[in-house]
Computed example of a mutant assay.
Amino acid sequence: MKIRYLLLHAYGTGGTIRTVLTQAGWMAEAGHDVEVVSVVRRRTATGFAIPKGVKLRALVDQRTGIAEPRLHARMLRKLRGHVVPRGEPAAAYFTPEVEAAVARWLRGLSEGVLVTTRPALNLLAARHASGRVATVAQEHMNFASHRQAVQRAIRRAYGRFDAVTVLTETDRADYERVLPGSRIVRVPNAVHPMERALADHTSATAVAAGRLVPQKGFDLLIPAFQRATQAHQDWRLRIFGTGVKRAELAAMAEAAAPRVELMGRSDAFHEELAASALYVLSSRFEGLPMVMIEAMAHGLPVVAFDCPTGPGEVITHDVDGVLVPPQDLDALTRAITELIEDEPRRRRLGAQAVRTVEAYSMQAVAPKWLELFNDLQTARRGADRTPLS
């Protein structure tokens, strides 16, 4: 089977890129013809290793400069394409040149399965993809988190896909409501396969990770951790990630020093997880928080805001982690304090967390994708044999 995955920037290091490459690698290992197509290329080297057997190509090479001059915002809007709405976070990537390159490639597809991986790409595929290819729109975020312009575009366009895949049961219900009659399938992302060292529950280290953006709620986590450790000043919180809020968060971390540190990006993040005793997820909203699942695979107990969506679909409260009401600083502070003070509970929750995330292994998730792809291919072959009336 020919399977193509369309990513915005396959040379980056985001969670979607990693999960798509993990899936592509499994499909290639299973004997399928797999290609990952990057809309743009802004780096020479990839951020993640490309799995064996997976081909990689880019549609628009921007390594010598981004074809988007610095102009007044009103003029810049005129240089953007016509399909991707401004509310899509990656809208600035989609100049007329980029949209045209994607459209040409989509129209030229003649077989197999196409998987697109964010609203901008989904919307372009809905408009331009060849009718000879089975189309799957991956949604990595819950519907309510999208801006209104994106929601309107989703309602208009996603019904053209053979299937829309989502990460959680809550997402499935939401998309079934807004896309009546469409095929909505829940397939969670899979944890990247590797041997995992178990967490050091005696460590006085808590860890968090994600882009330094408002969504991740690190502005809530830092004061909560600072309060939780008033009587436990040997404990440290290490936050991994980069992003637009770094300066603001750095000022907060400096005020909480030495108990809070911004660590930037790590090439040995799994070693950092194994050296920690506790993981904290403070997001205002999520899709399916893969870093949290990675932490659980190391046997780390998790304290998480029960935000929409994801944490509550993975964690059972006080069985394999602790859920607290969204954006409730007092509850987050109490939960962190309680786990700091209770090593046996940390061990109990962490041991169960390892068992919970077995459902997110590639061995558990990949067959769901393969079943869907085979079903779509069979249905498309049947449709091709149906005589025109």
Rank of each mutant, 00 (worst) to 15 (best):
residue 354 V to D: 08
residue 379 A to Q: 15
residue 51 P to S: 09
residue 226 Q to T: 15
residue 358 E to D: 10
residue 297 A to T: 07
residue 25 G to P: 04
residue 162 D to I: 05
residue 7 L to H: 00
residue 182 S to P: 08
residue 39 V to H: 11
residue 120 A to V: 01
residue 92 A to N: 08
residue 302 V to C: 10
residue 105 W to R: 14
residue 271 E to P: 05
residue 154 I to V: 15
residue 317 H to Y: 07
residue 124 L to E: 04
residue 148 Q to Y: 02
residue 203 S to K: 06
residue 290 M to W: 03
residue 363 Q to W: 08
residue 77 R to A: 11
residue 217 G to V: 02
residue 350 G to L: 11
residue 65 G to F: 04
residue 53 G to H: 07
residue 323 L to T: 06
residue 100 A to L: 04
residue 61 D to L: 05
residue 172 R to H: 13
residue 81 G to W: 13
residue 237 L to R: 04
residue 370 L to Y: 01
residue 358 E to H: 13
residue 330 D to R: 09
residue 54 V to G: 03
residue 243 G to M: 03
residue 238 R to M: 09
residue 79 L to G: 14
residue 54 V to Q: 00
residue 302 V to M: 00
residue 223 P to Q: 04
residue 350 G to D: 11
residue 95 T to K: 02
residue 256 A to S: 13
residue 161 F to W: 05
residue 334 R to A: 06
residue 356 T to Y: 02
residue 380 R to H: 15
residue 245 K to L: 15
residue 13 T to P: 08
residue 345 R to P: 01
residue 238 R to W: 10
residue 63 R to M: 05
residue 246 R to G: 01
residue 346 R to E: 07
residue 302 V to Y: 07
residue 134 A to V: 15
residue 146 H to I: 00
residue 233 Q to G: 13
residue 166 V to D: 00
residue 92 A to G: 09
residue 281 L to I: 08
residue 331 A to Q: 10
residue 291 V to A: 15
residue 217 G to H: 04
